[in-house]
Simulated assay, not measured.
Amino acid sequence: MKIDSALADQTVVIVGGSSGVGLAIGRLASQAGARKVVLIGRSRDKLDSAAAAIGGANVDVAAADMVDSAALTDAIRSAGTIDHLVLTAVADEKKRIDAIAALTDAQMEGAIDKLRGFFFAARAAAPIMRERGSMIFTSGASALKPPARMSILAAVNASIVTLAHALAIELAPVRVNALTPGLVDTPIHQGEEREGIRRWAESELPARRFGQPSDLAHAALFLMTNAYVTGQNLVVDGGLVAR
């Protein structure tokens, strides 16, 4: 299958599409011939910039916070019939990392917002999914290898994988999969922190490099186009979990 026709005549909706992995998936979906790519996120300005970066008349945007159920439902259903729903939005992890005894109720609720938003999105999209379309739920490596001080994030990411597995049965023949990244060079990493991660990845990670949004985009395209893959968790982490 040629990449420029892999998604021909299909509609791809990406929640969290204004930057990072979501933007990379939007760009690749457009290149793969999608009839329509809809980017959803909280900031209209960031969405407009993302659409301009992708280019093409097939890119639409809709501003909505994924934890606002009504607004997110309106944004998703404005796309019409959907072939692929991709959920890449993330919680601000730095605000959710702490020892369990120090985590506040607000920090816990903020972490759970990711699961809440993914639930709202799946519920909104389910009635308008094309019969053999797909959903992709982006989790995180902490679901499989929980580090210290990330207990609530690890629990949320593991729940997202389980939600995807359960919906693969419930929504069949719509295919539902989880996509689990490791360390990826996105805007959540800045300055010295980013450089520290890059140096560590290049010396310690089995892949010997920092993951790129394009790595996850190609994995997402695989999940969208392989009609025999469902109920799976595709780990794209440079060997982080196996380390």
Rank of each mutant, 00 (worst) to 15 (best):
H218D: 10
A111C: 15
V90T: 09
V21N: 04
S214F: 06
L28Y: 01
T104D: 11
N157T: 11
M150H: 13
H165Q: 15
V156P: 04
A158D: 05
G17S: 02
A6S: 10
T81R: 14
G196S: 03
V61H: 10
A63R: 04
R35V: 06
R42H: 12
L7C: 07
D185T: 02
G55Q: 03
K2H: 12
S203G: 11
L103R: 13
L167R: 06
G238F: 01
D215L: 03
N58C: 09
I100E: 09
R209A: 01
D98R: 07
I40F: 02
L216D: 07
P147C: 12
G231D: 01
A111K: 09
S19H: 13
A62I: 07
E131V: 01
R27T: 15
Q107T: 12
G239V: 00
R149N: 14
D45H: 07
I3Q: 13
V86L: 05
G231R: 01
M108E: 14
I82C: 07
T81H: 10
M129E: 00
E202W: 02
A143Q: 00
P147T: 12
Q107P: 09
R208N: 11
P206E: 00
P146W: 11
V184I: 15
V67E: 00
V67H: 06
I197D: 05
S78H: 12
G26T: 08
A242I: 12
I169F: 10
K36Y: 07
E204G: 06
A99C: 02
V235F: 01
A53R: 08
V12S: 13
L72T: 04
A207F: 05
S142D: 09
P187T: 00
I82M: 05
S214R: 14
L115P: 04
R132A: 10
A219T: 00
A125R: 04
A155K: 11
G20I: 01
S19T: 13
L7A: 13
I152H: 04
H189W: 14
G140D: 15
D237V: 05
F222V: 12
R194C: 04
I112H: 08
K114L: 13
H218P: 07
R96I: 12
V21S: 02
L23G: 05
V90H: 08
V241M: 06
